[in-house]
């Protein structure tokens, strides 16, 4: 959760001059969870990324949230810094937020329930919003369980409000959505990165743990995209306490998927999804 250390009265604030000096003296403080501006100044720029291409660099507290609207072709890397984070993600078309992540189609169309490298995040409109283009988390992801709720977290941890140390994922997604001009009805089922669940033969949802400290997943925006991220404990996390850690975000200008990418032709269903997306953008003059 947000680190408030360092806040509070530091010096006399009786006059406007004193108060202004006090306020200004608070800047340039480095804490664990904060955005890096300009993005190229990120102290954690991935080794394989040209800093000058960065468009978004941030460490998101656990629990915490972030959100951004990015251009088509933006590549977004999420990192589970300590192995304790869970990034719950919703993506929506920035052209029309009624077109948003459809978890059922995301599982059904590729005939695959588990997210991994090459998996498309599909909208309900037969198009690809984003593609999971790299998975260095060993497939420890989940599309079945969604986020925790405030009522559930109050019952399990004693608190679930967004400003508490045991914030519910749902509360954080609602805030991220609101900042993008969206309302609760714009927050559909989500996908969860860095914490895994598998379905047993009898249907039981079984916990498979995490991808370890430093696990990453890369998404590529296939259209102008609004990204909502809630970093909050997974609903099935068996840890006794609320398990969380920071999520690092780096996004840079790259390329949307093309027919030369293996996932474009991985299955006939996916090929048609990319073709639909391509035509949708072509008609709008977006390349």
């Amino acid at each position: 959760m947000t680190d408030d250390r360092g806040a509070g009265r530091r010096s006399s604030t009786a006059t406007l001059t004193q108060a202004r000096d006090d306020a200004r003296s608070r800047a340039d403080t480095a804490v664990e969870a904060m955005p890096y501006l300009p993005p190229a100044s990120s102290p954690y720029t991935p080794a394989d990324v040209d800093p000058s291409t960065l468009v978004w660099a941030e460490t998101v507290a656990g629990p915490g949230y972030t959100h951004m609207t990015v251009a088509r072709g933006t590549r977004i890397r999420l990192e589970d810094v300590t192995g304790d984070a869970c990034a719950h993600v919703v993506v929506l078309s920035a052209l029309n937020p009624g077109e948003r992540l459809n978890v059922a189609d995301t599982q059904k169309i590729p005939w695959q329930a588990y997210l991994g490298a090459g998996h498309p995040l599909l909208s309900g409109d037969g198009r690809v919003l984003a593609t999971v283009v790299a998975d260095a988390a060993g497939g420890h992801h989940d599309a079945f369980c969604g986020v925790t709720t405030i009522a559930g977290n109050i019952e399990r941890y004693g608190a679930g409000a967004a400003h508490t140390a045991t914030a519910a994922g749902r509360e954080l997604l609602l805030l991220a959505a609101a900042k993008e001009g969206l309302t609760p009805r714009d927050v559909p089922p989500s996908v969860s990165f860095f914490k895994g669940v598998r379905v047993a033969p009898d249907g039981a949802l079984e916990w498979t743990g995490d991808g370890g400290a430093g696990a990453t997943v890369d998404l590529v925006a296939e259209m102008p995209l609004t990204v909502l991220v809630a970093n909050a404990a997974h609903p099935l996390d068996p840890a006794e306490g609320y398990r969380t850690g920071p999520v690092r975000v780096h996004a840079w200008a790259a390329a949307a998927s093309s027919a030369s990418d293996p996932w474009w032709t991985a299955t006939p269903e996916r090929t048609r999804a990319y073709l639909n997306t391509q035509q949708h953008l072509l008609a709008r003059g977006i390349r």
């Binding site: 079945f144 709720t149 559930g152 009805r185 249907g203």
Partner: peptide
């Protein structure tokens, strides 16, 4: 109507991917 069925809240609460007799169909707040 902003309060609606949530497959994810329903499945996470029952810790099973299938609906059977006794399954509680939950909204997005559980």
């Amino acid at each position: 109507h902003d309060v609606r069925y949530s497959a994810q809240a329903t499945l996470a609460a029952q810790r099973n991917a299938y609906l059977v007799d006794g399954s509680v169909l939950r909204d997005q707040e559980g």
